[in-house]
Structures are given as structure tokens and as C-alpha cells.
Design a binder for these strands. Sequence first.
RNA 1: GGCGACGUCGCCAAGUGGUAAGGCAAGGCUCUGCAAAAGCUUCAUCACCGGUUCGAAUCCGGUCGUCGCCUCCA
Length: 486
Amino acid sequence: MTLRITNVLTRKKEEFKPIHEGKVNMYVCGPTVYDWSHIGHAKTYVAFDVVVRYLRYVGYDVLYVQNITDVGHLVGDAEEGEDKIQKKARTDSVTPMQIVETYTKGYFDNMDALGIIRPDISPRASGHIPEQIEMIEELIKSEHAYVSNGSVYFDVTSDPNYGQLSGRKLEEQEEGTRFEVHGDKQHPADFALWKKADPEHLLKWNSPWSLGFPGWHIECSAMANKYLGANFDIHGGGRDNIFPHNECEIAQSECANGEAFANYWMLTGSLTLEGVKMSKSLGNTLTVNEALYERNWKPEALRMFILASHYGSPVDFSEEAIEASTKGWQRMASAVNLVRTQLSQAPKGEASAKVTGLITQTIADFEEKMNDDFNSPSAIAVLQDFTRAVNTMLNSDEPLSAGSLTAIEQTYQKLGADVLGIIPQGVGGSDSGVDKMDGVMQLIIELRAMARANKDWTAADKIRDGLKELEIALEDRSDGTVWKNQ
RNA sequence: GGCGACGUCGCCAAGUGGUAAGGCAAGGCUCUGCAAAAGCUUCAUCACCGGUUCGAAUCCGGUCGUCGCCUCCA
């Protein structure tokens, strides 16, 4: 069973063959930290989180690099316009580096909250100015770039492969109405490697050409090269950056390094909000903070929603869709909760053949789906089927042995928690203070059981209703009462 | 105008040649002090038209529609 990946570079689904046996070097374009992360970021980074988790699950040693863009880039590619970070700094009456610091922290906090495992290296663009300058010098020396008025531009006509990723041919682009030759450029499609700074520009560095700042694309080329080498396995990012950013990255890297850049390109589909892509100008952004702390959607449910579509497909975010995902997630999470609760009083014994068989089949199906270009929607469907079977056994008359319950719990842990990150730890469906909380709950459940034994329904219902207001649900089963966070 | 995706049940969404996964919603049933949860069960021929094929949601051509990118954006 081999892993297959849809390679945007070749437009084909290909068998994945790493450059070095057992090792995967991977780069994913990170965020520009000038504002709060929104759920579009969440979609992309949850998707790649699962890619990395699965690669590790099947045994690869993954080195995952994701940049932080903290160098001001112009709002437009043209000469005019203000850099986004500087603009935000001005609006908020703080310095650019404060903006960068605030939103870098915010980004990591948000991604942590979503259960995303941090990249192994999160290089900052501002910390790699020398590397970028070095690469630009190499491009000038090899005549792929030219200096013009203190700025440096990449000469797209010097790269016959320019357009290989996005499928945009230079000749066709020239006919486009929105393409104009600009100021210092020799060709309209040439892009900046280094820009000379205006006097009022705050984020600027010394270079051989001017006091200025690097172009938008060069940081990824320079940092990927530094940490992963010229040629590496996987490059990921959002589909919306395929042109010009990714295209330019390839051009710069391959011309500077003299060898192929990334072997596999994986691009995620964009997330839209009520059918429209989120953008500041339309005011239809939904931040991760709002989703998590104002709407109170569970991180696992958000991940479930994101993973319910294939990573390469666009996704439309709606209230209805997230509610549906949450319900679906709850059924699975409740089953895990019940398994963990029953584990404490389960009869001793090995896992039954029925359970072992079910688990073997589930794991095989799950891996088959994930091996097919990380098909998380189908993998989730496998877990849903597993959950139905588990619930049936949990509700049957013969209690499951400790061995069976442990095996089931471990399966959820391996597939649902380790790979997909949608199964919470501990009893009760919460991650923190679970032991003490469970002790308290057991006591309350016991007291209520006494009330029920006396047919004191008033007391029993008061306990249940009161807990419900605290968002704790009690479920009376024939074999006892189970609690869980809602 | 160019480049690229896509159009599958009320909603979300898998499926890329062999006769339609899964989730949500809805109806029926079981269990139950009540409730909740869970289980069982019912529910689509794949935008439209034409073609290739023994056979197509899946391939080809056309039509209509939606979205992304071509200026910063995951």
C-alpha cells in the first residue's frame, strides 16, 4: 500500500517517493503576521497538520518548516502603496515590530488551540535578510536578475520554465488587460527581489543596492534552501498563492540553485464565507478567536469540519455546516467517552476476536483512504462506521472486556487523536483537570443514583438540570450514568 | 480578456470506467421514571445536451452556472 499525492506541478496523482529513504523535507508557506488569524488560515494549517501527522504515523521522519512573514511587503506590487505591517502599525499607533510580535504570538496561540502541532522550524523573514541578499546576489551574477534604481528585479524571460506551476504562459499574460509595464521593470511580469525603501518606510535593511527591504517571494526561497536544501520533497500552501507567489518562488530557487525546487506541490483550496472568499475590504472575515471564543465552537469540531472536505477542495463555511460537523463529531467523541468510562469497571479479559477483527479492518480501511492523497473525508467515514459498531457493542447485553475496551480506545487514540486530532484526551471530553473533575462527577452521580433509587425524581432532575446549565450532560444507561462536557 | 478548479440526496461531502461512502436534517421503530444518548430502518442515478464504450457520475465535445487567481491574501 503506497502513499499517493496529487502533485499540482504535474497535475497528476503520483506515488510519493521521498528523496531520502524514510525522510520527508517539507515546506509550507506561513502567514503574514499583520492581523489576527482567520478560519481560512485554520483550514490550510489544519490540513497540513494532518498531512504531517499522517506522514509521521506511517513512519517518516518529517522535517516541517513554515515561515513567518514579518517583513513589510507592499499592499500592491506596484511602486505606490504602503506595506501592510506598517499600515497596521500606523492605525494602531504602535511600531511595526510590535505588530509583528503581537500577531506572531496570536498566530501560535490560535494554532495551538486548534491542536495543530507546531512546525519544527518557524523561521522569520526578518531574521534571514542576509540569506535573502545572498540569493539575490547569486541571481544577479547568473544574469537572472538586474538592478534598477536601487531595486532588484527578477528577469522572467531568463527562465524558460517560468509558468510551470500555474500554467500561465508569458505570451498569454501580455495580452491580459491588467498587465502593465511598470517603472523600473524591463518586462511587465518581472518581480521585485529587493525594493529600495521610501524615506517614510520603517522596516528597512542595508543591502548592496539600497536601504530597502526584500521582495515578497524571496524569503521562502531563501529559507527553504537554508533549512531543507535546494531540492526537497513537499511544498505546501494555499491555492490562492499559486500565482504569483509560488511561481516566483520556483523561478528564483531553480535559477539560483541550479537544480529542481520541490518535487511535490500540495495546494489547499480556499475557504469561503457564505460563498465569498474572506477579505478585509468586504469585511467578511471570521477570526479564529471569534470562532473559538465567541461562537464557542470546539477546536475538534472545527477540525472535523475542515477535514470533512478534501484539502484541495474549496470549502464554504456556514453556520449550518459547522453545526452539522459538531453533531457528527459529538457522536464519535461520546462513544470514546463511554469506552473510557466503562474501562474502569470492565471485567478482566483479552480483547475478543470480534473486536480485534473490527479494529484490524478499521485500521486497514483508514490507511487505505489516507494513502489516497490524504482523503480525510473518507477516513472520517471509516471512523464513523467504526463508531457505529462500537456503540452497538457498548449497548449490547454482554459487557466488553477490559482488553476489548482498551483496544478500542487505542484505535481511537491512534487514528482519531494522533492522526486527525479530533479526539479529546481524558474522560468527560475535556483536556484539563480531568481526574479531579471526574472524581467530583462520580460523587454527584452516586448521590443522584441514591435519589433515583428512592424515586425522588425531583432531586434527580434538579441535579441533571443544574449540571446541564453548566454544560455538563448526564445520560442514564442501563449500566449506570455517564457524564460529559457539552 | 487569460489561467485554473468545480457543478453528486433538503444541507455538507466521498467516489475518476463496472453499476452511488459518510455526516446533518426528516419519517418509522427499539430502549427508557422522564430526558438524553445510542441502535435498527426509510430517503439520490450524479447541471444539461451529444459522443466513445458491452458498460460512464467517472473519458471526449458542447451548453449553462458557480468559485479562485491574474494587485496583498492560507
